[in-house]
Amino acid sequence: MSDLTKLQDFGRDLDRDLAEPSPALRNRVVSTFGPDSRRTTPTRWLGLWRAAGPRRRVAVPAAVLATSTAAVVALAALGFLGGAPAADAQAVRILNHAASAALRQPVPDIRPSDFVFMRELEMAAAITMRYHRKPLVSERSVLTDMWLSASGRRKGLLRQRPFSVPLGRPTGPWRATILQACVHGQLVPPGEGWQVPGGSGKAECRPVPAVLPGLPTTESAMLRYLYDHLAGQNPPDQQAFITAGDLIRDHYIRPASLAAIFHAVAHIPGVTVVHGAVSADGRRGIAVQRIFKGESDQLIFSPTTFAVIGEREVVVGPNTGLKVGTILDLTTILNKRIVRNLGQTR
């Protein structure tokens, strides 16, 4: 069977989740075909709007992802730069605590050949939207170990296993994936015997360093950086908040830059506090959030050390089609450190 035939079968298989377009859609669309129409955007009715930004899910090799172009949006109006923080007062206090805590951390000596080791527990909701019926929500948790090349030029390793949060233990074996190295702009095929999603052929790449060089260390420069590196489809303020979370989750950030991120987030309008946010491993934290289209994106801090312990996306509004309180994604950072060798955890 050719790849095109397989793809066509796949398409027909996906049709099983689809109904026909509703008569209401026709009315909604056709009503805009008039000389006196003032509507500029179609109404979102059943809009489950996943406000997620460029959450670099681990299923795709980092180096492969690097070949996709990230939209770079320059925001001209950074009018609030230099003014009072735009987040609410409680959120600013927490972010200031987090920045101070970051600055108390030791500054590691990182070599380009090093790896960032991260252990994360991610609980993701699998949502099946159904026509004229309530969506089905189920949860799945995965324990992930990642070794990402500090410079992006060495191959990395990712291993994952299913994990039961209620049982507190893994429920399946590890599955490993090599993250291909990017050397001289070309992906390096991994060794024999490895299955790598995306194939092992040659492809152009840009290295994705897990320790970003030249990240700003001042509040104003970091704020500009966050708005200049928007990669998702959300409005700039929401995306800047999500980008800050993505930076923290997917990289090792040096203390001065980490502090600058927290100070910068305090300047993003609409950032507020959530008390009692719980991480996947049961730790109770305090979170700062930004709400968009009925979903709250949250960055969770330890209430004692003010280190980031995770991230959550929670349904908070009625317009998503999902029950308020549904957790769409909960990522808990269990460990993050610089190591010399692939596979080393301490």
Binding site: L18, P21, L25, T41, T43, L46, M129
Partner: peptide, 18 residues
């Protein structure tokens, strides 16, 4: 619908015709 899922297909069609 195949590309984005049923939840978004109608919005995409509406946006396209608009």
């Amino acid at each position: 619908g195949r590309r984005l899922g049923a939840a978004d297909a109608e919005d995409m069609v509406a946006a396209t015709f608009l």
